[in-house]
Design a protein around this nucleic acid. Structure first.
Lengths: 305, 305
DNA sequence: AGAGGTTACGGGCAGCGTAAGGATC
DNA sequence: GATCCTTACGCTGCCCGTAACCTCT
């Protein structure tokens, strides 16, 4: 009779289009995967996968099975979630997060998750969004909080929060007049996120449109960027919400510019495969935590200089 | 991780309210059942079954799991049905049938089932409806075609066909006048179904209401009842639709009485537990076959004498 | 004391991993 | 010839069955 193991194996093979990669993912050997698929095909009396080509592809019947199989796996997860004791949920969720989130509501999330699932381990990886996205697609992460949207069919995404981005600088850096524009700013180095991130690209385009080319300092670490700004090395372009935690005491001030920088829209993303069912639950908690955090910062907005 | 075997075991224990009986049903030993339940409880971190009392009972969480488990089992069956090759469906359906059905559309059903599921074996048991009902409840049968309705929560029932019941007799038996009433009939022995069947009870009540007490001959075999009628032993009370097959050539004639005998309403019944999923499919075919058979006999009704 | 569930322990077999074989580009 | 799936084979570990034990009526 068909069991869940066979269905899971089939789902992985169909999604990864490879017996070998599925075997790696399932921590078993490739012949074992062959056997499970062969048995599944035998029980059903039909061919599920086309192996002639370079890439394995599901037959029409295989695609139909895939829908059923994924639903069954999902329903099993729902069942365990609804009748099982949450303390009995053990395991590891590999969670990738953008640094902005580390400095805002990540601690609150960790607390909430630990309360809801006392025996669930969160393995947190801090990295920039493009890297997180890549590792998500490689199924190296079960869940990630990154700058979206990620229009990829292999991951689900749900909005989390939106952080405005602004110019901030140490009070050591002085400007000739109150109203600061790009021409004033460009005299100083701009410190921001890594080269291949969305804010970096946005910024460079912004200056380019005015015919300006500032010196750009890119830091993979947001905290380091803030440190550099504090030391008066340049003007940082970051979400000010992090300052409360990263540079408390108002040592950095937000510049009163008319420049509109696009905000960072964060999403929770997880693979479409029913990989780690708990990831979905952590995402739900994160959405709640993030929106609560948004509301509290919106209610008492920081004043510009 | 939870697998189908554990869920099936749990379903049987919960329904039969006994580890031992579930073990018998699943063709395994009682300790094996204990182990599977214990493991299921451990994975979920909750108690599913209350064993203190004489009868095992599901806890509230257990009842919740039961709903999920039965749905999962049903969905697996649906999946196999919709994507699997029907020729790959092997197994045995133990089918109990009333004799009336044997003599009407059972051969057509067998043909249809064999065509749809070439490797499915039908194990047919002919018996009277009360016995079939009992064996259904004991899960000794996967499916039965019997006189309904069976208002029991442990079996599903679907209507199949309705057979009128009439007085039939050999031409050797002669009556004083054309219009025959109960007083004419009661002079002869009445030959019909077994004592505890619905037609037998109906008949006795019918005569009793007129203050009559005929000699009753009860036969567990409908064919034997017909044989007795052919031999002029008495007047048979049977569904005339069977005569075409059992006594061809019009040797028995239907008596022109004004007496209204209630018809036999046949239903297909199968246990509510997701026991043998194919039973449901056979029932579907039976409903179709029975209704086609009904239509063809209705279109060309037999003439009364 | 007997029926029924749990625990202990030894054995059998399904399924795994290693290694060799074939097919396709 | 490199890559990837299949087949062959020996082995391990899980699960089962037997039997003793415990608990409740």
């Amino acid at each position: 009779m068909i069991d869940f193991k066979a269905l899971e194996t089939f789902i992985w093979v169909a999604n990864l289009k490879s017996f070998r990669r599925a075997a790696d993912r399932l921590n078993t050997t490739q012949p074992a995967v062959s056997m499970r698929i062969a048995q599944l095909e035998q029980v059903l009396g039909i061919r599920l996968l086309e192996r002639d080509k370079r890439l394995v592809a599901a037959t029409p019947k295989g695609q139909e099975l895939l829908i059923h199989a994924e639903r069954l796996i999902r329903m099993r997860a729902d069942m365990m979630e609804s009748v099982g004791d949450r303390a009995a949920i053990r395991g590891i969720v590999r969670l990738g997060v953008s640094e902005s989130i580390v400095h805002t509501w990540l601690p609150a999330l960790i607390e909430r998750v630990n309360a809801a699932y006392p025996n669930l381990e969160l393995e947190i990886e801090v990295d920039i969004s493009p890297n997180l996205h890549e590792r998500l697609l490689a199924r190296d992460l079960n869940l990630a909080f990154l700058v979206g949207p990620t229009n990829n069919p292999n991951v689900y995404s749900r909005p989390l929060c939106s952080f405005g981005v602004e110019f901030v600088a140490s009070s050591r850096i002085r400007f000739p007049r109150k109203a600061i524009d790009l021409n004033d700013i460009v005299k100083w180095p701009i410190i921001t996120f890594s080269r291949n991130t969305q804010p970096y690209i946005n910024l460079r385009d912004l200056f380019a449109r005015s015919g300006l080319r500032p010196t750009m300092h890119a830091s993979a670490s947001l905290a380091t960027a803030v440190r550099m700004a504090l030391d008066g090395i340049g003007i940082a372009v970051i979400p000010p919400v992090i300052l409360k935690n990263v540079a408390p005491g108002g040592k950095l001030r937000r510049l009163a510019t008319q420049v509109d920088l696009p905000p960072l829209n964060f999403v929770a993303s997880w693979p479409t495969t029913p990989d780690n069912p708990v990831a979905r639950r952590v995402a739900d908690i994160a959405i709640d935590v993030a929106q609560k955090a948004m509301r509290s910062t919106t209610r008492a907005p920081m004043r510009k200089q």
